[in-house]
Design a protein around this nucleic acid. Structure first.
Length: 581
DNA sequence: TAGTAGTGACTAACATTTGCCCACAAATG
């Protein structure tokens, strides 16, 4: 059987949408393919499994027609409709859409008029000055297009990890906040929603003197060039190639502005549809009655949602993944917050590849308000990280007990391990050694590219060991480039639910693993979640907010997250009689 | 094209800003 992966189907559907857009098809047909691509991207399950269950049409935006197309791709590895379309619209035209400022209409125009089918041909034509005579084009557009092509070659158009973009955004925001007359300032867009990667930086400011803020923005140290500037909006390119937008409005319009600029786009569209049904048009400035009444201003987001008959919806949920329906039904989750977190169950010391001693890490955690930690250094077979032999692990136990005593009654230091799940599926320590530990985290670090069945089986083996309490960073992905193990997440979650094994959300922003949709799937199946920093140095304790945000994106409540429990409850849970043990 | 209603037809997807050319394409959430 030919097996296509989710991301290949996403790619084909989105290319079909692009080709239809270039051809000038009806918008709803294009949207249907785009929605299908987005839906499968956010699915979190192997589409092959969904197909085998006969449940493709349960996926939002997938009806009979698209289900048949998915079936065709899964069984034959091809899509005849795509091939047919490709004969009419060269697929290389789709690649031209990656150039900023080039949309479907313009691509069709240069293809129809100048017979240009590739980015290279377009570049040559622009250099030879052949584009400026096209209707709606000019010398200025031509030069801008060339610059955009060069920018694409220089920086690409890949998404940037949250952990890279957010600190940059916050620093820029701090600068803008210093401008006199600024009353509100916030990061918006996917950064505020804390998606794991981001395409650009969105900043919003409320101020009376718009120009002063815009001027400061355009003059920030990390700004390479100003790509656009109007009365309320400035768009710049940063030195690292990332785009950044700033939107400025008066403070009395802050609520509508913040909702608009936080998104997601799909969430906004739903809100605006709801507004229309109430006789109101909603934009970033205000609600405007369709009957011509005066504008209704909202200074807060709460007012915007209230006007629509909704409770406040936290930004982390605003992905149009059922949050509006849940809000209408009064069933929004009360999300876990940073202040709920009492413990960190995964960290390293100088015993393996960390930078501080056991006691120093404990003190650093206490200084950040935690009430307990589990010391989890690497195990023996991860030689590169100075993993602990059984003998060293037992020596470490004494040091951990000493640190626990030294920290006094208000802070617990527990002994654990981050144990390798070896390439052959076996575990790095025998059961009798694991039984001596307070908490056992088991993780994959090697042979992540094994076939799905094999790598999943390794993880299932660990989950079913009664001494294993937590699976650390389950897929092992590293943003933005390493995809991680191709796990059968349905099987992993089912096994975790059955055994009570905790799945980790690793808070390090290069991991954020479990990712949001998998965390949500796990929680829906009753699996408990641990949010851990995996700190190798004290500064990494500060990465916790990334993990909490990812849990929030997975709709996690306090009850779902074991770090919110008192440490005695946590120990009782991990020491309970196990289903399989 | 999906979803719903009803077995062929209808609706769905909002609202803005900016650049550049002089009406529209592209981009933003």
């Amino acid at each position: 059987m030919v097996r296509m992966k989710n991301r290949e189907i996403v790619e084909i559907f989105s290319r079909v949408a692009d080709m239809l857009a270039i051809r000038g098809d009806q918008i709803h047909r294009i949207l249907a393919y785009r929605k299908a691509a987005e839906s499968i991207e956010a699915l979190g399950r192997d589409v092959n499994v969904v197909y085998a269950e006969g449940k493709l049409t349960d996926i939002p935006g997938i009806g009979d027609t698209l289900a048949a197309k998915i079936e065709e791709m899964l069984t034959t590895g091809r899509l005849a409709f795509y091939d047919k379309l490709a004969a009419e619209i060269p697929p290389s035209l789709v690649d031209m859409l990656r150039v900023e400022g080039l949309g479907p209409k313009r691509v069709k125009q240069v293809h129809d008029v100048l017979k240009i089918s590739t980015l290279d041909e377009l570049t040559v034509a622009a250099r030879e000055g052949k584009l400026r005579d096209l209707p709606g084009m000019g010398a200025k557009s031509e030069a801008k297009l060339l610059a955009a092509i060069e920018a694409l070659a220089r920086h690409g158009d890949a998404r940037i990890p949250l952990g890279v973009a957010l600190p940059i955004a916050q620093q820029m925001l701090a600068e803008l906040s210093k401008v006199p007359g600024v009353v509100q300032a916030a990061v918006g867009g996917s950064l505020r929603r804390m998606r794991d990667t981001t395409g650009d930086i969105d900043l919003l400011v409320a101020a009376a003197d718009v120009a002063a803020v815009m001027d400061r923005f355009a003059a920030l140290d990390n700004v390479e060039s100003v790509a656009g500037r109007g009365p309320t909006k400035t768009n710049v390119v940063l030195l690292n190639g990332l785009g950044a937008d700033l939107r400025v409005l008066p403070a009395e319009r802050w609520g509508t502005l913040l909702v608009y600029f936080t998104g997601s786009k799909d969430h906004n569209v739903k809100l605006r549809e709801m507004a229309l049904k109430r006789g109101l048009s909603l934009n970033e400035h205000a609600f405007t009655p369709l009957d011509g009444g005066p504008e209704i201003l909202c200074a807060t987001e709460e007012e915007v949602y209230h006007r629509l008959g909704l409770p406040f919806i936290p930004p982390r949920l605003r992905e149009d993944r059922g949050e509006i329906e849940a809000a209408l039904a009064g069933k929004l989750p009360t999300l876990v917050t940073e202040s709920d977190i009492q413990t960190d169950l995964h960290m390293h010391t100088t015993w393996s590849d960390g930078s501080l001693s056991v006691l120093e890490m404990a003190r650093a955690a206490q200084a950040r308000g935690l009430r307990g930690v589990v010391i989890t250094d690497h195990s023996v077979s991860l030689g590169i990280a100075n993993g602990l032999s059984v003998e060293r692990l037992r020596q470490q136990a004494a040091e951990v007990r000493a640190a626990d005593a030294a920290m006094g009654p208000d802070f617990r230091v527990l002994h654990g391990t981050e144990m390798e799940i070896r390439a052959d599926g076996s575990l790095d320590y025998p059961d009798e050694v694991l039984a001596e530990l307070d908490v056992v985290v088991a993780s994959l670090h090697t042979a992540l590219s094994q076939p799905r069945e094999q790598v999943t089986q390794r993880l299932l083996n660990a989950i079913r060991n009664p001494h294993v309490d937590i699976i650390g960073h389950p897929t092992g992905r590293l943003l933005p480039d390493r995809a991680g193990a191709d796990l059968d997440m349905d099987a992993v979650i089912a096994a975790a639910a059955e055994t009570g094994t905790i799945l980790e959300i690793n808070a390090n922003p290069v991991r954020l693993d479990l990712r949001d949709v998998h965390a949500r799937m796990a929680i829906e199946k009753g699996v408990k979640i641990a949010i851990d920093t995996d700190a190798h140095s004290p500064g990494e304790f500060d990465l916790l907010p990334y993990g909490v945000a990812t849990a929030q994106r997975g709709w996690a409540t306090v009850a779902d997250v074991v770090n919110t429990w008192p440490i005695a409850d946590l120990l009782r849970y991990v020491n309970r009689p196990h289903a399989g043990g």
